[in-house]
Nucleic acid binder design. Sequence first.
DNA 1: CTCGTTAAAATGTTCGGACATTTCCCGCAG
DNA 2: CTGCGGGAAATGTCCGAACATTTTAACGAG
Lengths: 260, 260
Amino acid sequence: MPPNPIDVKTKKEPPLYRKIADTLLSGIRDGLFPVGTLLPGELELIERFSSSRHTVREALRVLEDMGIVKRQRGRGTLVTSTEARPAFVQAVRDPRELFTYPENSAFRVLAEGSVGDEDHWPGKIGEGVDENWARIAGLRTLHDGSPFCWTDIYVLPDYAMIAQQLGRTKSPVYEQIAETFGETVQRISVEICAGSLRGERAKALLVDEGTPSLVLYRRYRGNGNRLFEVSVTEHPADSFSYSLEFNRGWQAAEHWSWSK
Amino acid sequence: MPPNPIDVKTKKEPPLYRKIADTLLSGIRDGLFPVGTLLPGELELIERFSSSRHTVREALRVLEDMGIVKRQRGRGTLVTSTEARPAFVQAVRDPRELFTYPENSAFRVLAEGSVGDEDHWPGKIGEGVDENWARIAGLRTLHDGSPFCWTDIYVLPDYAMIAQQLGRTKSPVYEQIAETFGETVQRISVEICAGSLRGERAKALLVDEGTPSLVLYRRYRGNGNRLFEVSVTEHPADSFSYSLEFNRGWQAAEHWSWSK
DNA sequence: CTCGTTAAAATGTTCGGACATTTCCCGCAG
DNA sequence: CTGCGGGAAATGTCCGAACATTTTAACGAG
């Protein structure tokens, strides 16, 4: 009989190496093993969990794949983070985590427009979009109150109301669209290029006219390749960083972030 | 004895599980195990490679992490692809593919400098770099002859000669450094931000003063966290694009590229 | 022919052991 | 004080074995 995906009752016991990994992760998050310190050696973990070395190593491998620890021969197991790998790889597991903003950020709608507000509309991005989109302009600020980025949101008219709700929630755009329309995001694309901040954008972000800034175009496509959201974001004086750390074998740890 | 970075002769043998993985991957690519078929069982592989089950499983785990095969308990090891996961993840397997330039591009050395040519040196990037770096400025052009990007290369003096060879080869910087010194790249980091093209840069790229452009800072680190190459690149009117395509499950296809 | 049982096959989990390689630190010679 | 060597510690690689869980297919009862 094929297993029923809905059958939640069969809560099977997780394997031992998984429980060890969870225990260690809890210890890391509780401050027992702060970031920057070394985890106990394998021999000590074997004693503590009354297990074999292979099982302990399997648990540590889980944490390594998560990006929680970094193992180094001759040195030990270094705690590098309390959270699982952010970056692109995690986004694959949970797309909602992709392309969101820092926590403690506020969103304020500055203006609303409709067809014709195209002073910043990128023509090449508009492929596949009919002419009836609407524009909503907003501003997010960092938690300390300083301007962080300017966001233009272009949506199809059906979804205009979603954009209006952005000021009242912390969940990312993707989630709202998906929840409201039951759509499934099939493709996310992001384009990064450089631009200059002028006019109301420069004023809102408290920078000089012509200040260079990063510009991000984002597109989300649902079933049947139907476009349901496009947005443009400009980050002044911010930079996007991406780094790769090589482990043995094939896996690597990825990090990416926005920083001032 | 501390390892000598100059000692190139010690080309160490890769571990056995790595060689098994490579052999299997060759077989997959040669059509011996077409996509959609099952790989031989672990027991058979143990006999064929005269190895232990642990080693064989380690090899299969490498292929699984690469996205080449998908393992399923009770069923077997299914070949799902002949190519590793593209984009960022692939870069892990072969860092030389990362951050290279389009084919048919030419490189021309415009100027050479040394300590003090710091008009564009990013202070925050300089952490861990002593003061004795050298700067080599160059320009790459697209195959149609139009300017593509400006590249500043900052290297430690020991590696200055490598930069001088850049005009005479098509291989990326990483490859030259690795081959010459037998180093292993442990970490690659890239930072993308926005800037304005001025002075000789604007002139070389045939754009107006103050034209916004993307600026990339790249760092390569070898064993012992030793920095051995830093470069700065500016792309005028170019854009970086990244897209994610979701399949069922958690796997996804990634694409990224530079485009005009 | 259909359905349920059973057996075989394949991978997943766990244990125990041995040696290799790298890193770090301490002590000693200069 | 510096530099070198060596040992201790930690992780990496590899072998052998046993049992558990899942899938698939063959088989037999109805």
